[in-house]
Design a protein around this nucleic acid. Structure first.
Length: 450
DNA sequence: TCTGGGGTCCTAGGACCC
DNA sequence: TCTGGGGTCCTAGGACCC
């Protein structure tokens, strides 16, 4: 909480729909709905003309069609959105070194770092009016709503108060008066579940929330969430504007028009997603250690299974094999409506870049040499789960680690760059000759490898 | 023709280590 | 001869945001 209103929040109005109306004059003044056009799509953005019919984001596309049959229903052109977004973010970064994008259409700007001469309410208001004009200029006609306050929390609430094309500056000292009459759902982090929990203890407004002790809020909402609620109810918010945020995970997911049951089809769909994911990892020049498979079943229940490798990977084949193995751990017999594959535990993977251009860098198939390596490993007969760093007798590859049904083998052969890791499900046919011996025959007990 | 796709953060339990 | 306590990593699920 600062003593001057120097945190600014910009929110582009009905962003996706506005870009469509800008680029297609025939859509101007008409209801436009952007979202998933498949049978199970939902609304991303509705133009203000469509909102008048009760269409709003997150509503099912089917419901939107019912409410506003004459709207234009569009699936979205993300290149165009990204392009306009980048222009706005570029403009903001010219103003202040501290710009924190929240999504394509939203950002915080720290005006204290912008070197403004006058940071009074009057000064920042004049500044914001100019900024709004420049947003419209660089985007060829889009408008944004701006909120300014002494904290992120207040700035964000302010930008929402006068949409579209709004500008609200909350004067220092007025924060608590502003939020007291509001519903608790204005607090970021209070969604349907928390709102219901609060309703059960008789809390609907921020003023009522203020009356609840910190201990009670922790009991109702959990440790971290409860104490945040206690502070935000009093408009206490010291969160900084953070310019550079590293991604923590990357994922791909798809909802299908009809549920899938066939395991071979499910496996093929997972393959496709793994390849797409690997492409995105390489494009972003990162790799990750933990692969997660997400499965949403016919009843909308969602299940995840994950496996962590000893080292990071961006290899499509590796991700595919793990994801497929994870798929076998989920009961999909009732039908699957969504599949997703993601990678987390991201790291820069410099070794990968060194070899990115050499065609032989990636062992995407089991070539003869690889198979030979696996076979030679197989003859050792002394590997057990949990064991790591076991050379084969030719020094060409070794078991690096294992976990949750996945064995990771590291290769160092003529065609394989250092650091390349290949992971295989423990039931992979290629490993069959040297799978761990049954417990009664083994002279090492599983899990006690080293 | 209920309920997207991309993310973030939190919780809780168990394994493991010192 | 009967049971520690803290820290970290991993996994699964859930709430939430745009």
């Amino acid at each position: 909480m600062r003593d001057e209103p120097t945190i600014l929040h910009v929110d582009l109005d009905a962003f996706f729909a506005s870009v469509e109306q800008r680029d297609k004059p025939s859509l101007r003044g008409k209801p436009v709905v952007v979202g998933g056009v498949g049978g199970r799509g939902v609304v991303s953005t509705a133009s203000y003309e469509a909102r008048a019919f009760g269409v709003h984001s997150a509503m099912s596309m089917a419901e939107a069609r019912r409410r506003c049959p004459n709207a234009a229903f569009l699936s979205g052109r993300f290149h165009a959105y990204r392009e306009s977004s980048e222009r706005v973010m570029g403009l903001l970064r010219g103003i202040s070194p501290l710009v924190e994008p929240l999504s394509l259409d939203e950002a915080f700007v720290d005006l204290a770092a912008a070197g403004l001469a006058d940071t009074s309410v009057r000064g920042v208001s004049a500044f914001a009016r100019e900024l709004k004009d420049r947003v419209t200029e660089v985007t060829d006609g889009l408008t944004g709503s701006v909120g300014i306050g002494t904290s992120k929390f207040i700035a964000k609430i302010a930008s929402d108060l006068d949409k579209p094309d709004g500008l609200v500056v909350v004067a220092p000292g007025m924060e608590r008066d502003l939020i007291r009459p509001m519903q608790v759902t204005v607090i970021p982090g209070v969604g349907p579940s928390t709102a219901e929990a609060l309703r059960r203890i008789g809390v609907h407004t921020v003023a009522e929330l203020e009356e609840v002790s910190a201990e009670e809020l922790v009991r109702v909402a959990g440790r971290a969430h409860g104490s945040t609620l206690y502070q935000l109810a009093r408009a206490e918010d010291d969160r900084l504007v953070v310019a550079e945020r590293e991604a923590k995970s990357i994922s791909v997911e798809d909802t299908y028009d009809t549920d899938h049951v066939d395991r071979r089809i499910l496996a093929a769909l997972v393959d496709r997603q793994a390849v797409k994911l690997a492409e995105r990892l390489r494009r972003s020049k990162v790799s990750g250690r933990t692969v997660t498979l997400k499965v949403r079943l016919h009843d909308f229940s969602t299940h995840t299974r994950s496996a962590t490798l000893p080292g990071p990977t961006d290899d499509a084949r590796t991700i595919t094999r793990i994801a497929r193995t994870l798929l076998t751990e989920v009961d999909t017999s009732g039908g699957v409506r969504l599949l997703g594959v993601g990678v987390s535990g991201l790291a820069d993977w410099i070794q990968e870049d060194l070899f990115a251009d050499s065609p032989e860098a990636a062992p995407t198939e089991f070539d003869e040499e690889t198979s030979a390596t696996l076979a030679s490993l197989g003859r050792r007969q002394d590997w057990s789960p949990g064991m790591d760093v076991e050379h084969d007798e030719h020094g060409r590859g070794w078991v690096w680690g294992s976990g949750r049904g996945v064995v990771t083998v590291r290769f160092e052969t003529a065609g394989t760059p250092p650091g390349r890791v290949l992971s295989l499900p423990t039931d992979d046919p290629a490993l069959r000759p040297w799978r761990p011996a049954p417990p009664d025959a083994a002279d090492v007990s599983p899990g006690s490898g080293s």
